[in-house]
Amino acid sequence: MSDDVTIRWLATSRGKLAWREDGPAAGVPLLLLQRFRGTMDDWDPAFIEAIAAERRVIRFDSSGIGRSEGEVPDSIGGIATVAAELMSLLGLGQADVLGWSLGGVVAQQLALDAPHLVRRLIVAGSSPGPIADGPQAHPRVAQVMTKPENGPDDFLFLFYPETETAVAAGRASLARIATQPQLGPKVTAASFMAQVKAISTWPGVLHRAKELPMPMLVANGAHDVMLPAYRSYVLSQQAPDAKLVLYPDAGHAFLFQEIDDFAAEVDRFLTR
């Protein structure tokens, strides 16, 4: 990919939001919603290149995140409203939406609150909300993910299984992300705490999953220590038109580990 990083700015009711786009302008755009404590710079550039080969891909820093102005809303519905306003101001009309982790939570809420904006929905490494049964997060997850700053070993634990193949893929992905030019600021402590509040107070969508009629691709790594793959399975069973894909020897960041396979899956899903 080019080292020329073109950051665009959009004036919104919450202040200016930073955004950028990749890929050709034609066709239905794909909007990306980022993970907890992630900015638009934290997408693996190799993943962006793969999914933007045939379509316009839009990513942005939500209110109070990264380069963007404003404050992080303290509810998932509020964060979804930021995405909806961005879509409206960009004149997207309707878009496909891919949300990873926290972004998958926001994507589900967006699809419930503004279904007219979402043509197809991809929920990656995420959850439909609190689920009491089945596997739960690894006991170390809360401690690691709430550190003031996460290092490579933290991300390897959170995002990849402890196998030689997965760890090697994880190190390569982290290196690609870290060596991008013109990286923006990290998520602040105040924004981090607002995200925590939003997540902890979200009731989930399982009681309303049948109100998500759009085609849905639900994907995860089979060994996700943060949001166990069982949660993806539960969501896929409740949504009316959902396909479930699980990747072996992969975890929360399966989409950066199995880039070619998942990009092909995304392309099939969006063009079928």
Rank of each mutant, 00 (worst) to 15 (best):
V72P: 01
V97M: 07
I79R: 05
I51V: 15
L98R: 12
V57P: 00
I51H: 05
V97A: 05
G66A: 12
E71C: 01
F47D: 00
D42K: 03
G66H: 03
L98F: 10
R56P: 11
G104N: 06
A107N: 08
I76V: 15
G104W: 00
G66Y: 06
L98K: 11
E69I: 04
L86W: 12
S101K: 02
S88V: 13
D61F: 13
R55I: 08
I79S: 02
L92A: 02
L90S: 10
S63W: 01
G70R: 00
G38H: 15
L89M: 09
I79Q: 15
R55G: 03
I58V: 14
I79H: 01
G77C: 11
Q94G: 09
D74E: 15
D74G: 06
P45I: 14
L98H: 12
A95D: 05
A52I: 09
V97R: 05
V106E: 02
V105N: 00
L92V: 03
V72A: 05
R55H: 11
G64F: 02
V57I: 12
D74Y: 02
S63V: 00
F47P: 00
A50M: 06
S75L: 08
E69Y: 04
V72M: 12
A80S: 14
W43N: 08
Q94S: 14
E71A: 10
V57A: 00
G64Y: 07
L90E: 10
E71V: 08
D42F: 08
L92M: 12
D42P: 03
M87Q: 11
G99I: 11
Q94K: 14
V57W: 02
G70D: 11
E69R: 07
L98P: 02
G99F: 09
P73Y: 00
Q94W: 02
L92P: 05
I76S: 05
W43R: 07
E54V: 09
W100L: 13
V105T: 14
S88Q: 15
D41G: 04
A107I: 09
W100I: 13
L89D: 10
I76H: 07
V97K: 05
S75P: 06
A50E: 01
I48L: 15
I51E: 05
D61V: 05
S68M: 11
A50W: 02
V72H: 08
W100Y: 14
L90T: 09
V72K: 03
S62W: 08
A50F: 06
W43D: 03
G64K: 05
E71Q: 14
A95W: 09
E49R: 15
T81N: 14
I48C: 06
L89R: 15
V97P: 04
G93Y: 13
I51S: 02
F60N: 04
A83Y: 09
L90F: 13
L98V: 11
S68K: 12
D96E: 11
I65V: 15
A50Q: 04
W100F: 15
T39M: 07
E54S: 15
A83D: 09
M40V: 12
D96C: 03
W43F: 13
F47I: 10
G66M: 12
R59M: 02
L92Q: 00
S75V: 02
D41S: 07
P45L: 14
E71K: 13
G78L: 01
G103H: 03
G91E: 10
